[in-house]
């Protein structure tokens, strides 16, 4: 990574809080709108919008039947399935362990907490290739952890389990950093009220705390899922990359490209890009839903 330290999280900042719009009736005397706006739009178009539309135009140039044939070949469908299934499994496991981690950080005190909390951003800061070879060193059959799993008949490296482990590493900060601030805002007096009315601790968690943090948890889940579907560097070393078994969709794009199959690479990339747009819409949807729920 891919560091984005927390930056990838900021996707959510753009849409998260209900924005306070300061309506100003008078015209601003601050200069530079034309210059900065012009440069912003021009640079955005040059670097992001035009290249991405080039992808769609190339895909459209393939024609519908060709697009379906190469974009949804058996091998491509298998790759999508592996990418989506492992990303989903990793995001779900992170949902549990990320919530646990955030809970422990927010609610309890223990030595070394601040340092460990800072370490949660490591997957954002560590380049993906480094994470990939490090995880492979741990989980390969003669690796630090793999050698203990091997006799038990558990194969991690070079299977979808290995892919999931890499995606758990990559996705963890998304969940923790989404949930942490919301969990810190849950008011303890509401919990005390529930307890004094006779609720059991588990009931308090399920009925009081969980509803409050659910939108943040879902946002983190969606961010981790989106990231996992497109992830490449950390996965390819541990995946084994066997077609139909452990080949992820981004790797298939690279493979097709190396064989000069530009049509297939374009079609698969278009499917992935559409999937990330769908995830973006989903995340926006969660935010809108939260806002409506907060002030009906």
């Amino acid at each position: 990574m891919e560091i984005a330290l927390s930056s990838q999280l900021q996707m959510q900042a753009a849409v998260a809080p209900p924005r306070k719009r300061h309506r100003r009736s008078r015209k601003s005397i601050v200069p530079g709108f034309g210059l900065t706006m012009g440069f912003t739009v021009a640079w955005l178009s040059l670097i992001v919008l035009i290249p991405l539309s080039a992808l769609f135009l190339r895909a459209a140039g393939l024609g519908w039947s060709e697009f379906l044939a190469v974009g949804f070949s058996e091998r491509a469908i298998a790759a999508y399935r592996i990418s989506f299934a492992t990303a989903f499994a990793a995001a779900a496991l992170n949902g549990v362990f990320g919530l646990l981690t955030a809970w422990v950080f927010v609610r309890y005190e223990f030595p070394g907490k601040r340092v460990l909390n800072a370490m949660v951003d490591l997957p954002f800061a560590l380049p993906t290739a480094v994470a990939g070879i490090a995880l492979t060193a741990l989980y390969s059959p003669n690796g630090w952890i793999g050698r203990f799993l091997e006799p038990l008949g558990i194969k991690v490296a070079y299977t979808p389990v290995g892919i999931t482990i890499a995606l758990i590493f990559i996705g963890l900060p998304f969940i923790v950093r989404s949930v942490e601030p919301v969990l810190a805002d849950v008011r303890v007096d509401v919990e005390d009220a529930a307890l004094s009315l006779g609720a059991r601790p588990l009931q308090v968690f399920v009925r009081v705390i969980l509803p409050a943090i659910l939108p943040a948890l879902l946002t983190g889940f969606a961010l981790a899922l989106a990231r996992g579907i497109g992830e490449y560097g950390s996965v390819i070393f541990i995946a084994g990359n066997m077609p139909f078994k452990s080949e992820i969709a981004p790797l298939l794009i690279v493979t097709e490209l190396e064989q000069y199959e530009y049509g297939a690479a374009t079609a698969i990339a278009t499917v992935l890009l559409l999937a990330s747009f769908a995830m973006l819409l989903l995340i926006n949807g969660i935010q809108v839903w939260t806002r409506k729920r907060m002030d009906p």
């Binding site: 753009a14 739009v41 290249p51 991405l52 490209l257 990330s276």
Partner: peptide, 25 residues
């Protein structure tokens, strides 16, 4: 808000796709 969403767009694009678009250009 549309402009903000477009600026965020690269975060949700797979790195491989980000490289590919330049190869296609």
């Amino acid at each position: 808000s549309v402009l903000c969403t477009l600026i965020d767009l690269p975060f949700s694009v797979s790195p491989v796709v980000a490289g590919l678009v330049y190869v296609l250009l």
